[in-house]
Nucleic acid binder design. Structure first.
Lengths: 150, 150
DNA sequence: GTTAGTGCAAACCTTTTGCACCAGG
DNA sequence: CCTGGTGCAAAAGGTTTGCACTAAC
């Protein structure tokens, strides 16, 4: 029994071709991808799974805490997550995600207005995107409006 | 010339009834609101402005750095922002937003993998939402799947 | 008068749902 | 077998766009 099947079995989910294929696709890269991207991957994998099934599988995996769903410019992107207690640094320019074990909660705990705030994701701009645009040093070249975000 | 008109003038935007009304609505509360909510507010204000115009106005204000757009469960919500350099703490359960001047960047700067990451938003769960669900102390009662997020 | 702004309706895109069919345990 | 899983097509919801009309400067 391979890794994907074992995972599904441990979660109490039925072992089906579409699910195995989605898991395999997720494992292929740590870059967060949309349901449509994963679906394309699954199709390329030979499985004739429908987009609906990909959505339902991703939902099940998110509920099982195996996958984390990020919101990228209005569309959901998914990523297999290893560790239990961790936080994500998400670059809003390139979409890079770094898992961190930094205890940022500890930092906030000493800040009055933020007392007890439980950090899950930190959104911002990574170093390389920040420096990328030499023309505009003050601020990275990023989508700034809802229009542009699409 | 009132505040809204002055603002529009400073931004080099034409002063029109819909825009004044959108600005007035934004000023009314610091809670982030969707375009639809702001549109309802604008309508109640007597302006017959259309939803399209509300979107276009919000886009212009975001581009001008006067308004910050958050992503709340797949829909955009908007909020007037005062300070230039600040970060937001966003509760994913109740949508509460707190502006903070904490220099979280400084904290991250000493963490190798996160070197140079420029923080803009911190997503998580606020203290009151965290404690709300007595049945499940380990984790707040939150939407966990894309399905549930709607 | 010219250009920027507006309203409406239709298009768009991602995600969800209804329902009949199929297959895993 | 029986329940959970699947596919398709249609619906839903938020957002954008095309185009003709209007109003600001």
């Amino acid at each position: 029994m391979d890794q994907e099947r074992r995972t599904l079995h441990e979660l109490g989910l039925a072992i089906t071709a579409p699910r195995v294929s989605v898991l395999r696709s997720l494992r292929r890269t740590s870059r967060p991808r949309s349901a449509a991207e994963i679906h394309a991957d699954v199709r390329a994998d030979g499985s004739g799974a429908g987009l609906t099934t990909v959505y339902r599988t991703l939902t099940a995996l998110v509920e099982a805490d195996l996958v984390h769903a990020f919101d990228r410019h209005g569309e959901a992107v998914y990523r297999l997550c290893g560790e239990r207690r961790h936080q994500h640094l998400v670059c809003r320019s390139c979409g890079l995600v770094v898992e961190t074990v930094l205890d940022l909660d500890e930092v906030l705990r000493h800040h009055a207005t933020a007392d007890g705030f439980h950090i899950e994701e930190v959104h911002g701009v990574c170093a390389s995107c920040w420096g990328e645009d030499a023309q505009d040093r003050q601020r990275p070249r990023l989508a700034r409006s809802p229009q542009e975000l699409k």
